[in-house]
């Protein structure tokens, strides 16, 4: 695992931004609550229980839905011409330019270091019931997996397939999906850290913690 940490960090330092596009989740009539260039906040609080800045209201079937920001950043390319009109599902309304913080940089880098088990196809994914029980109970230790373990169920076209883990044995360090999520092909499902790499991973995290200031 030879990733050049210095290069990666330099890259993130020169442009620590990510663009998040905000599309309508469903149909309805839009009324905006933000202006172009406005700073918005993502959810906050210990359990992220305080919602982010109100971006717009989408009213469908007399049911107004408040859409709040999931990211902290600046509003860009706001489509003001859609104000007060009926929009279809998946219509792009605005973009939020988000500045990456330390934890997010760590997450981006972890994805490069861990052995990532990816979704072989666009489908819905579940952990097997036994795995769920284990993950719920033993969050501290982490679940160790070995090659050939059937821990994931892929649900495709209403048919269930058990997927064997095909990577090297290790510990599930990070899970990237929720039970039953629709995951795109090749998107990460979970990341496994090899036991011998654990010190390296910890070093990476340590280094970013000290070198990065939010």
């Amino acid at each position: 695992m030879d990733i050049n940490l210095n290069d990666l960090l330099r890259q993130y330092k020169s442009h620590p931004y990510e663009d998040h596009h905000i599309d309508t989740p469903h149909t309805g009539v839009v009324s905006f609550r933000v202006k172009e260039g406005q700073e918005v906040k993502g959810p906050s609080g210990q359990w992220l229980h305080r919602p982010g800045t109100l971006l717009y209201i989408l009213e469908r079937e007399k049911n107004p839905k408040k859409i709040t920001s999931s990211f902290t950043g600046k509003v860009a390319s706001l489509r003001t011409e859609l104000e007060g009109t009926f929009v279809q599902a998946g219509e792009r309304l605005l973009t939020i330019q988000h500045k990456l913080n330390r934890d997010e940089i760590i997450d981006r880098i972890l994805r490069k270091v861990l052995h990532i088990f990816r979704a072989p196809q666009r489908a819905r994914y579940f952990f097997t019931p036994e795995t769920v029980t284990f993950l719920e109970k033993e969050t501290e230790k982490g679940l160790s997996v070995s090659t050939g373990d059937e821990i994931i169920i892929m649900s495709l076209m209403k048919r269930d397939t058990f997927l064997p883990y095909d990577g090297p044995p290790g510990i599930i360090y990070k899970v990237y999906f929720q039970q039953g999520d629709l995951v795109e092909q090749d998107a990460p499902l979970f990341g496994v850290c090899l036991p011998e790499k654990l010190p390296f991973v910890q070093k990476v995290i340590q280094r970013i913690r000290t070198e990065w200031d939010d």
Partner: peptide
């Protein structure tokens, strides 16, 4: 033709029906 989020969301169907 209206793009909706899901064929199984009744609100989507009724919202498009009204519109």
């Amino acid at each position: 033709a209206y793009r909706i989020c899901n064929y199984k969301d009744p609100n989507e169907i009724f919202s498009v029906a009204d519109h």
